[in-house]
Amino acid sequence: MPTPNYTALIIEDEKNITDFMLKALKSNGYRVITADSGKSGLSLISSQCPDLVLLDLGLPDIDGNDIITSVREWTSCPIIVISARTNERDKVTALDLGADDYITKPFGTPELMARIRASLRHSNRMDSNSALYIRPYKCKGLYLDFEKRMIVLDGEEIHLTQVEYKIVAFLARNSGKVMTYSAIMSNVWGPYTSDNNRILRVNMANIRRKIEKNPSQPQFIFTEVGVGYRMREDENELC
């Protein structure tokens, strides 16, 4: 159960969607504030400093992507896009601009709350003053110790190449969130790497052979077709 101290801002102009998310968040202990336009949403982000933003892209006054760009100039506050846009390019664009996750309408409460937990966990893990910053990743027998750079599966150490480890560690630090191909490649090979993701796909195939019982039906790292990869959410609960 999350702490009631978390504040979520909903920026959404469809009242039924706002009411649905408002009810779900409040029932899980969150403080919630709402805005029905981009301008009022930006004002609330700067004045209220929410812990999380749930953002619709199709707002009446400002495109949601422009809000992401503006907010990312001064804060790393988690942003989860809530949108009816299902095109892969729309998802990639929002994520590459700095959104932490992307949920397509319609969606259910369990999915919404799982994505929120993942985004808040990532936000806390990236804070070097947080205990989560160095806490190992654990999920269904897979254990990743970031300090020792060690991966163990069902009690046996898994030997990955340096590149393979960097890919898995990056996904584990962002567990539960979809990471675009470009974000992964930039983190592993640097910001000036080629846009061709073939080398990433080759490494991912090798990783899956080492950590998945059935690489064609992965249980740890999932493919978001045309977008990137998502690692199963860390089993550690937020404190």
Rank of each mutant, 00 (worst) to 15 (best):
E164F: 02
V227K: 01
R232C: 09
N5T: 14
T193V: 09
I134S: 15
W189P: 00
L52Q: 06
I80R: 00
A118M: 10
P106R: 01
S83F: 01
R125A: 10
M204L: 10
G226Y: 06
S37A: 11
W74H: 13
N65K: 11
I68H: 00
T161E: 07
K166N: 12
V163I: 12
G190K: 00
Y30D: 05
C77Y: 07
M150R: 15
S119V: 07
L171E: 07
C49S: 15
G108A: 13
D127G: 08
S182R: 13
R198F: 12
A99H: 02
T34D: 04
K177Y: 07
V81P: 01
D13M: 03
S186K: 08
I103H: 11
S47K: 15
E233A: 14
G38M: 07
E212M: 01
R125F: 09
S182F: 08
A8L: 09
E224I: 02
Q162M: 08
S123A: 06
G228L: 00
D234I: 01
D90V: 03
T193W: 02
D63R: 08
V227C: 09
S46F: 08
N65T: 12
C139H: 13
L112D: 07
E235V: 09
N236Q: 09
G108C: 11
K105E: 14
K166M: 13
R89Y: 12
Q48R: 13
T93I: 11
M113Y: 05
Y165V: 08
N65Y: 11
N197E: 13
W74Y: 14
N65L: 09
D154G: 00
K39N: 13
D56A: 09
I10T: 02
F222C: 06
S194Q: 07
I151N: 02
A172W: 00
S186W: 00
D13G: 05
V152Y: 06
S47E: 12
I68L: 05
R117E: 15
N124H: 09
R85E: 00
D145L: 06
Y181E: 10
A114M: 11
R201P: 07
D63M: 11
P136C: 00
A99P: 06
A114F: 06
D234C: 05
L144N: 08
A172T: 02
K105P: 09
R149C: 12
L57Q: 02
S70W: 05
G38R: 00
